[in-house]
Nucleic acid binder design. Structure first.
Lengths: 135, 135
DNA sequence: CTGCATCCCCGCCGATACTG
DNA sequence: CAGTATCGGCGGGGATGCAG
């Protein structure tokens, strides 16, 4: 694997920072595309403190629709960020819990959240300045 | 600001990890929505080593369309990640360069890229397992 | 309580053609 | 070289209703 020299003509590739990134099968995009949805990272964040039930998550994230709550959880489960456990009670209860991968992801998510909060004001200021001089 | 106690009825708020996040004006989402576009983070990454001209960026990222290259650069400029400098030569040349904010963003982007590369295989494996046991 | 099915809107993005 | 303008597909995601 990892053909670097003798690359075929049609193969789309970019070289950045000393790395060779294939555009047709880029790991970063493959991961980013899934986790950059409107609710995915927030969901991982909501499970940081421990397992949660479906209805708990709905209360934690009031703005999410029931449809997107289900779908986001399914997508994260499929990619291995969390597990889904059904308890056959009456009525049924379902528990969602971060996997090791999910907790590992928190180690990069947390700095990002911190950075966003830290630099939010600067970004808003930049927007205002841009919109005034252009516009 | 930062009303925490005595919150109004209609105000949507979530409390996670000891932080109070307003959903109607969430800093993280405000930043993430812009930077999570298909090309934004890749563009910042492409400018990590130094300033680039328009045509250089197009060569570095062959898959991007001219339209999205322009638009992504405009959006990043607006949010303060990069500057745009026009040199009135013939034909004209335009240079894009990361700002301090842009370089600061690299400090959180880089770990994320590293994490993605590191865990890509695990995620693909999780997907395969999920798709097999489910339908 | 925890979903799934359906409808539908809107904004991202690609393709293409044209300009200083 | 470095854009702008226009068209159109497609998919994310919201609203609503039904089910086990």
């Amino acid at each position: 694997m990892n053909k670097v020299a003798g690359k075929a003509q049609g193969e789309r590739v970019m070289v950045i920072d000393g790395r060779v990134l294939s555009m047709s099968d880029c790991p970063v995009r493959d991961v980013l595309d899934k986790i950059s949805g409107k609710w995915s990272s927030l969901m991982v964040f909501a499970l940081a403190d421990g397992p949660r039930r479906f209805s708990e998550l709905r209360r934690l994230i009031p703005d999410i629709s029931q449809r997107m709550l289900t779908q986001t959880l399914r997508d994260l489960q499929r990619d291995g960020y969390l597990t889904r456990t059904v308890y056959p009670t009456q009525p049924p209860s379902v528990e969602y819990r971060l996997t090791d991968l999910g907790r590992s992801f928190l180690t990069v998510l947390h700095p990002f959240v911190h950075w966003s909060a830290e630099n939010h004001a600067a970004i808003r200021a930049a927007r205002a300045a841009y919109d005034e001089e252009q516009g």
